[in-house]
Design a protein around this nucleic acid. Structure first.
Length: 272
DNA sequence: CCCCAGGCGGTTG
DNA sequence: CAACCGCCTGGG
């Protein structure tokens, strides 16, 4: 399904790899289309291009980082099987068909937490702007194929800032949430490991000020790759209200409820 | 073109 | 259940 060479990953014969869907379905904020139609993004302090090539796709990255990107794009997982597994009713089947190509990225925990704290009551354009300013102002500079890019700043870096220093981000009332979360992480009060071990990771996450159930579910799904997490935002709520019974329980999708969530989200948001 | 509502992938007290 | 900060979008 994929083949790694020095600095290049070839994805061939995979029915479920569509860059546009992966990057535009709202799970990530640091991938952008560039002039030639390929996507350029930064994750884990590294950059990569993703583009269509022949009958497949290519991930163009620094030599030695192929394993990181294969993991990031969850390339070992068979999403065609997941699509089948969650197609348990007509509506979800249609959504899964429509969303064919979506994959859940294995993103950094802190970056995900941070990004989704900023996401509340904002549209994607603005979230991307906020995150980009955060990186440009406080992230480490990196160079990739002649471009100057910025890594996502560490929790320690953000924890050391004052509200005043954070103000150029223009994150509004979310700024104190961000600082507080950064300090809790930097102090080790909240760690990825603790959450992994916790029996109630959702409850643990919602102890963070500014993190409610929706943001916490997004962090579980995108930042801890808990594919059973099922974030309910306004779009999902709309779909649930229109097409599902009242007492709907996402556990009907089993361990891949979160992937079903992405299909439904993408479907109700983009389908005419 | 400028102006100003309305609305945004929520959370909190 | 309103208030929160601020921009982006669209109608006038």
């Amino acid at each position: 399904m994929f083949l790694s060479q020095s600095g290049l990953i070839y994805i061939e014969g995979c029915t479920d790899f569509d860059p546009e869907k992966i990057f535009e379905c709202g799970q990530c904020f640091r991938w952008n289309r560039v002039e030639n139609g390929s996507y350029l993004g930064v994750a884990g302090g590294r950059a990569a291009y993703v583009y269509a090539s022949g009958s497949g796709h290519v991930i163009d990255c620094e030599a030695g980082t192929e394993d990181f990107w294969a993991e990031y794009f969850d390339l070992d997982r068979d999403y065609a099987l997941i699509r089948k597994a969650v197609s348990i009713d007509d509506y979800t089947s249609a959504a899964a068909d429509y969303g064919n190509g979506i994959r859940i990225l294995k993103q950094d925990f802190w970056e995900t937490l941070c990004s989704f704290i900023l996401s509340q009551c904002n549209n994607i354009t603005r979230i991307k702007g906020l995150v980009e300013r955060l990186c440009t102002l406080f992230g480490d500079k990196l160079y990739f194929r002649g471009r100057e890019l910025y890594a996502f700043p560490s929790a320690e870096r953000i924890a050391a800032l004052s509200l005043d220093e954070l103000s150029p981000i223009r994150s509004g009332y979310r700024a104190p949430y961000l600082l507080e979360a950064a300090r809790q992480l930097a102090a080790g009060e909240i760690t990825r490991d603790k959450l992994e071990l916790s029996a109630q990771p959702l409850a643990a996450l919602t102890t963070i000020n500014g993190v409610g159930k929706k943001v916490a579910s997004c962090v579980l799904l995108f930042g801890l790759h808990r594919l059973d997490a099922f974030p309910v935002d306004v779009w999902i709520a709309k779909a649930l209200g229109e097409y599902f019974d009242k007492g709907f329980d996402p556990s009907v999708y089993g361990q891949y409820a979160g992937v079903a969530q992405q299909y439904i989200f993408n479907y109700i948001r983009n389908k005419a």
